[in-house]
Write a protein that binds this DNA or RNA. Structure first.
Length: 463
RNA sequence: GGCCGGGUGGCAGAGUGGCUAUGCGGAGGACUGCAAAUCCUUUUAUGCCGGUUCGAUUCCGGCCCCGGCCUCCA
């Protein structure tokens, strides 16, 4: 079985065939660094991280290049700086750091290249110049605009007719536009805002041009996969296609367009006005990153995902159960270097089928169920398979002991064990009231006891 | 209005033209001093109306809802 992916452009699930299996490229639209990332931002991070892991597994880690940009020049950043007085460079540096910290908690691997828009101004200007020279773009009042009617193929990604777009336009059409659908490639910048010298005067790039320029620079004229949230299909990705293909006629910009569905919170669209905006950081206060990751993967990536407190709890329970099997299997320590692929089973096939993670998870849980019923020797062997499979999803990355007991300060472990010893003595003396008091006191501190059949007592931290 | 997704058991969420995942939860039982964990058993579903078919949740048509996008929100 081979990997197939849904392609937004053709609206079909297609066999994924890279241009060159030795150099598979994937570009994903990264964050604009003006504020903490929210759980909606986290979805594409997790989805494309999974795709990255899968591609590495299929083609070899050295043959896949994952590029995810950082947008560090944007009007929203300017607005944030104006409001807080914090220098723009401080905002972008601080927010980029926070972004990295947050998504590391979600077990997202770092991309191979993480280009910044401000490091690629020259490439953008060059592309714009090409477009102007070929009359796909024009200068007007210091702006450079892409002339949409000059692109015969415009609309092929989002499947929109130009007339519809114009009719539905909700923003005033700038008077200097030749056509209402024309969009900005370059715009003049005030002295107090970031700007770069260009053939059209001091200015800054439009939103869409950066991804076109950076994708080409780091992955070539044609890239195998370009991904992002479904809301980017139009206008962002449509415009990227226009710029890229008109500046290099005869070459496809992207072979497979992959878009993840939107995320809502407790049934409502996440928005600042509704007050249901959840940052990754806030979500991490309520649950470990792996739980959030499992939650993300519980729904197929193209479907809407409703983020609920109950859903997070369910994910936690599911993950606990998997870790319990791992704990029981008593596997040797993690060694990522020996990671072999769990190919050729229901689990892997589910992932190959357009990243069907809910189905893959069900296969994983069936496997876990089987493993938990095996003999100790078998359990070690098949337990490793279980862990490898989960690792492909970016799950079960921790040692089970650490999962159940880690977290808070390690210092009180001795105290917990002392209390357990006291309780055991009380139980031996049939003083169950005293024993239960100890257990209740520990429970109040988030420590749950589990008596084993052999008479010993284990403990774990409550989620 | 245009385009795109959805409507599955108490909840989450897949597959599938007939054998009806998986998880969470509920119920009963085993184990336990009692719990916790584990194990066993168990309950309930395919928005509405037609059509195709021996048979549809799955295919087709219509309808009703829900959500997203429609120029800078992942």
């Amino acid at each position: 079985m081979a990997l197939s992916l849904y392609n937004t452009r053709t609206r079909k699930k297609e066999l994924f065939e890279p241009l060159d299996a030795a150099r598979v490229g994937m570009y994903v639209c990264g964050p604009t660094v003006y504020d903490l990332a929210h759980i909606g931002n986290a979805r594409p991070i997790v989805v494309f991280d999974l795709l990255y892991r899968l591609l590495r597994d299929i083609y070899g880690a050295d043959h896949v290049t994952y590029v995810r940009n950082i947008t560090d020049v944007d009007d929203k950043i300017n607005a944030a700086a104006l409001e807080s007085g914090e220098p723009i460079s401080d905002i972008t540096a601080r927010t980029t750091k926070a972004f990295h910290d947050d998504i590391a908690e979600l077990n997202a691997l770092a991309p191979d290249v993480e280009p910044r828009a401000t490091d690629h101004i020259a490439e953008m200007i060059e592309m714009i110049e090409t477009l102007v020279a070929s009359e796909h773009a024009y200068e007007a009042e210091g702006h450079v605009l892409f002339h949409v009617p000059s692109d015969q193929g415009y609309g092929k990604l989002s499947h929109r007719e130009r007339e519809d777009m114009v009719a539905g336009a909700r923003v005033e059409v700038a008077p200097y536009k030749r056509d209402p659908a024309d969009f900005v490639l370059w715009k003049p910048s005030q002295d107090d805002l970031p700007g770069w010298d260009s053939p059209w005067g001091r200015g800054r790039p439009g939103w869409h041009i950066e991804c076109s320029a950076m994708s080409r620079k780091h992955l070539g004229v044609t890239v195998d996969i370009h991904g992002g949230g479904a809301d980017l299909i139009f206008p962002h990705h449509e415009n990227e296609v226009a710029q890229s293909e008109c500046s290099r006629p005869g070459h496809d910009f992207v072979r497979h367009w992959v878009h993840n569905g939107f995320l809502s919170v407790e049934g409502e669209k996440m928005s600042k006005s509704l007050g249901n905006f959840i940052t990754i950081r806030q979500a991490l206060e309520g649950a470990p990153g792996e739980v959030l990751r499992l939650m993300m993967l519980s729904t197929h990536y193209r479907k809407p995902l409703d983020w609920t407190e109950e859903g997070v709890q369910q994910a936690r329970t599911r993950l606990d159960r998997l870790y319990r099997v791992l704990q029981k299997a008593n596997l040797p320590a993690l060694d990522q270097e020996i990671a072999i692929s769990p190919k050729g089973n229901d689990f892997y096939d589910a992932l190959l089928d357009d990243l069907n993670t809910p189905l893959a998870l069900s296969a994983l849980e069936r496997l876990a169920d089987d493993v938990s019923k095996m003999s100790a020797v078998e359990m070690q062997i098949h337990g490793i398979g279980l862990r490898l499979a989960a690792n492909l999803l970016g799950l079960l990355q921790q040692d089970p002991e650490a999962w159940f007991k880690g977290g808070e300060a390690e210092s009180d472990v001795g105290d917990i064990e002392a209390q357990i010893a006291l309780r055991l003595e009380a139980r031996k003396a049939k003083d169950f009231a005293a024993a239960d008091n100890i257990r209740d006191a520990l429970a109040e501190n988030g420590i749950i006891l589990e008596d084993r059949p052999d008479g010993s007592t284990d403990w774990r931290r409550a989620g």
